[in-house]
Design a binder for these strands. Structure first.
Lengths: 113, 113
DNA sequence: ATAACAGTTAGGCAACGCCCTAACTATCGT
DNA sequence: ACGATAGTTAGGGCGTTGCCTAACTGTTAT
């Protein structure tokens, strides 16, 4: 799993936009063409395209063109780096809580060694 | 749990920067002052401050000033909205896979009802 | 062959992001 | 009181983001 800062930057930034999150949400139901995806959004196609491009650049989505239509597909495990990072932070936090707990428990009266 | 787009935007965008992620990582070990936090980074204080402000605005972090020092504290469950959104997407995806599976399994020969 | 269609490129614009320097305020230590 | 310290404000540079319109390419349907 790629946890390089660059990759995480791209992922988090790609997900930091409501249009793109809605797109991801939609794509969970299955692949679709650019125009079909664009229909619900109040936006011109060129603008919309940029969102697709950004999702593609982040690796969340794959696109392929056959004939004159481009089909966009969600990449299944694409946000596991995000999940992994989040889990790491939580683990760190909980490790700290454990340490605090140990401190409190093992120190009946006088702290400071 | 607040899952409003605005909140998620702020969270994802706050996490879409390596400096800020490093900051979160550091803060998991416990609260610290602005200068202490800034020390490892090759950046002027005013620039650094903006990162703190952005984290604060996203709700990931709380700050309080006593005397002339400002202390920054990680907000424990602050990225659960992010987790929740991620989980929702995964659930959606798996629901779809289940549907596909059912289709394949329940359709020995002739598809199309 | 020609019109409609799906997507793309080019160019422009306002807002924002991330960095800087310089100068300032408010506290703390002596 | 005075200098050092911690943080803040003001202002600017420069690239990026997110939107637009207009014009274009390539593909399909009649």
């Amino acid at each position: 799993m790629d946890l390089s800062p660059v990759r995480l930057d791209a992922l988090f930034q790609a997900l930091g936009d409501p249009t793109r999150r809605a797109l991801i949400h939609r794509l969970a139901a299955g692949p679709a063409t650019v125009s079909d995806l664009a229909r619900p959004f109040d936006m011109t196609l060129p603008s919309f395209l940029l969102h697709i491009r950004k999702l593609e650049a982040s690796g969340l989505v794959l696109t392929s063109k056959d004939g004159r239509t481009r089909t966009v597909t969600l990449v299944p495990g694409a946000f596991t780096p995000v999940r992994t990072w989040l889990d790491d932070q939580r683990d760190l936090w909980e490790a700290r809580l454990d340490r605090l707990e140990t401190f409190v428990t093992d120190t009946p009266k006088g702290p400071r060694t």
